[in-house]
Amino acid sequence: MESKYDSSRKIFKSVWFWIAVAGVVVLCGVFYFIGSHTAKVDLNGKKASLEELVEEIEARKVLLGELKNKTESWTKEVADIQKELQEAEKEKNEALTIIENKSRTEEEMKELQKQVEKSNKELSSLTEEIKAKKAELAAAEGKIIEKKQEPKILPAGFFMVGKDLPAGRYKVVAQSGFGNFFVNSGSKVNIILGDSEIGVNEYVFYADEGDEIESTLSAKFIPME
């Protein structure tokens, strides 16, 4: 009796069996080739092949690299702008400080100017007071004080106070020699002025507006306090 094993061996040895197997293998290869070249996937709502998908991925990688480079560049630009803003803020603060210091200095200068003006007024007042006290002291001691003004020298002749000589208190001194010296025809002053036994070397008098002076010699008129 023939066993199942013997029967199977006969089947495998059959030519048609191997033909069938070869056909199946060929069909599988064909289907795999067709499938690998016709496989499609959805890409943005469109059907794309594997090659197109790979190209799209590579393109997006390039775009991603460009975006990365731009991002780094923008980050550097932002950092530079922030640095410039910090420098500008620093310069602004320094300028504000200078302006504030200048304003404070100007206020201090104004205050000092006021103090100087006040001190000048006080000094002027004190100077006038000192002059008055000196004049009082000189009067009490019988002394006379010359003013810090240029003396007036008049030759021999007739002169009018207020025209030829300003009104004021004067000490008259002969320039040389001696001679007569009259004021208002001798009613106010009547002396012999100069180096002589009967005259005086100097004489103090008040020359009032309109007085007439007559001198027979050149004389120096020294303003007095």
Rank of each mutant, 00 (worst) to 15 (best):
A95L: 15
N190P: 03
I144F: 14
A22M: 09
P151C: 03
N44R: 10
I145S: 11
G29H: 03
C28G: 04
W16K: 14
G194E: 00
F33E: 00
L217P: 12
T97P: 06
N44D: 11
A139C: 05
E58H: 10
G168T: 01
V172K: 08
N120M: 11
D211V: 10
K92E: 04
D208C: 04
S218N: 04
T105P: 06
D42R: 05
Y32Q: 08
R60W: 04
L67V: 09
K114F: 08
Q115F: 06
V30F: 13
K133Y: 15
Q175I: 11
W74P: 02
V26N: 05
A174S: 14
E55A: 12
Y203R: 07
E209H: 02
H37N: 03
Y203E: 06
E52S: 01
L96A: 13
E58S: 09
E225W: 00
T38S: 08
I145K: 05
A207W: 02
S176M: 01
W74N: 14
G157Y: 09
S215P: 04
S218W: 04
E117W: 08
F17L: 02
F182R: 04
E202C: 07
I198F: 09
D6Y: 15
E72R: 05
L64Q: 15
G65C: 06
G177L: 01
D80K: 12
E107D: 15
S103R: 13
E106H: 01
T216D: 14
A140K: 15
E87I: 07
K110F: 10
L63D: 09
I81W: 09
N93A: 14
V41T: 10
T127L: 04
Q149P: 01
